[in-house]
Every structure is written in structure tokens, then in C-alpha cells.
Amino acid sequence: MLPTPPLVTGWLGVCHHLLLAFSLVVAVYLKDSWWATEDVLRTSDPAREGLVKVQSFGERIVLFVLNVVIFGRLERNLDDDAMFFLPHSGKEEAKILWRDGAAVGFYTTKAKGSLCGDGTGTCYLLPVLDTVFVRRRHRGQGLGVAMLRDFCETFPDDEALGVSWPISPAMYQVCRKFLLAHPEERARLWEVEPPGAWGQRGSIWLKVQLQQAGLPAPESA
């Protein structure tokens, strides 16, 4: 049995504790009790269904568990160093995907005008879809496409939207399916490196067309 730590009262404290027990994470200590990770991801609120914007401290905990514990430790190929999401800051915009009372995925965005990173004065020039995750047993059901569609619908007035470079093979397939079904979005969806200037953008639709024609796609944005 894991020893009971002092009551964790802050977001950084929760993160710190989980990271200390990273190889053994099976529970999270909240409100004087241990909670199994699967229980942390459940809700009794019937209003939580579909994509819900992360706003509360509790939702930040759910986002952290999905990202660092479920994806980072349990459902990621640990040999794939290219696929790893850092813990999201409290200022990062995110939505959690809820289905039948459980959190099954999430996506995060970099807002237009937000800083590209600590210690830099450079800001993103367009909204950017930064991370997307769907739990293994819920994949193959179009949820990734649904999250990409929600991202695009959230910014109807922006002429250009970004997806963070490099796009993984799985995310590329999501983009391909989405753009084949939504031709109106083909001209404004770009693979981007921060901050997203024109020289840092690559057309995702062009990449789809080149691959369909059996031609080599551009290597980077």
C-alpha cells in the first residue's frame, strides 16, 4: 500500500506527487483519499457529455491524469520518444471529451496571441491545435475527426488554423479524413511551427494530395 502523503492543496503539488511515484501510478491522492486513476476520470454530472472546455481545478486534474498517466505511462509506446506531451500549463486552453460519464480524450490549443513559450516574447500568429489524444478502446470511432472539427468550428472567423508540427502518422490520417469530408477547410488548415509565420506553414491538404498521388510530401512546415 502506498503511504499517505500530506494533503495536496495545489496543482503543482499534485503533479509533483504523481511524478515521484511515476512508475507506480495507480491512484491519485485528493481530498484526504486515494482515488483509482479510472475513478478520477469518471463524473456523475450528466451535463458532462461530448467536448467540454476545461475550466475548473478538478478538470485540470482530469486533463493531467489523461495526459501524463494514461497516455504518458499506460497507453503510449514507451519506445516512441517523438510522441510525448509535456504537462499542460494552467493557462493552456483545452477541452476534455466525455462519453457515458468518463473522460476518454482531450485536445489542447495554443491561442492566437499567446506566448510560444517561457522566456520568449514571440506569440502565435494563428490558433494552433497542439495535442490530441483518444484512449485506445475508444479509437476507430471518429472521435479524433470530431475533435478536429470542433477546433475548426471554434474559430470560424480565422482565415488560417494550425496543427502543431510534426503531425504524427495517426493525426495525419485524422486530418486526411476530415479534409476529404470538409473541403471548405482545406485552404485554411496548416501544419505549423511556432509562431506560425508563412515560412513556417505547410498545407496539410497539399500533403494529402501528394501522398495520394504517390509523390513525396514536404518534410516539414
Rank of each mutant, 00 (worst) to 15 (best):
K95R: 14
K95E: 15
I96K: 10
I96M: 12
I96Y: 01
L97D: 13
L97G: 03
L97Y: 11
W98D: 07
R99I: 15
D100Q: 13
G101Y: 04
A103D: 02
G105W: 07
Y107D: 09
T108V: 10
T108Q: 04
T108Y: 04
T108R: 02
T109C: 13
A111P: 06
A111H: 11
A111G: 02
G113K: 03
S114P: 03
L115C: 05
L115H: 12
C116F: 08
C116N: 08
G117S: 14
G119P: 07
G119H: 07
G119Y: 08
T120E: 15
G121W: 04
G121S: 13
T122K: 12
C123P: 02
C123L: 15
C123Y: 02
Y124M: 04
L125R: 11
L126P: 04
L126W: 02
P127W: 06
P127V: 11
P127D: 06
P127F: 11
P127I: 07
V128L: 09
V128A: 14
L129H: 15
L129G: 09
L129Q: 12
D130I: 00
D130P: 04
T131Y: 09
V132E: 01
V132W: 01
F133D: 10
F133W: 13
F133S: 07
V134L: 13
R135D: 03
R135V: 10
R135H: 03
R136C: 07
R137T: 09
R137L: 13
R137G: 08
H138E: 14
R139E: 14
Q141F: 10
Q141H: 15
G142A: 02
G142S: 12
G142E: 10
L143I: 00
L143S: 05
G144W: 08
G144H: 11
G144M: 01
V145D: 05
V145M: 02
A146M: 12
A146E: 05
M147H: 05
L148I: 10
L148H: 01
D150P: 01
D150R: 10
C152T: 08
E153G: 00
E153K: 14
T154Y: 08
T154E: 12
D158A: 06
D158E: 15
E159S: 15
E159D: 12
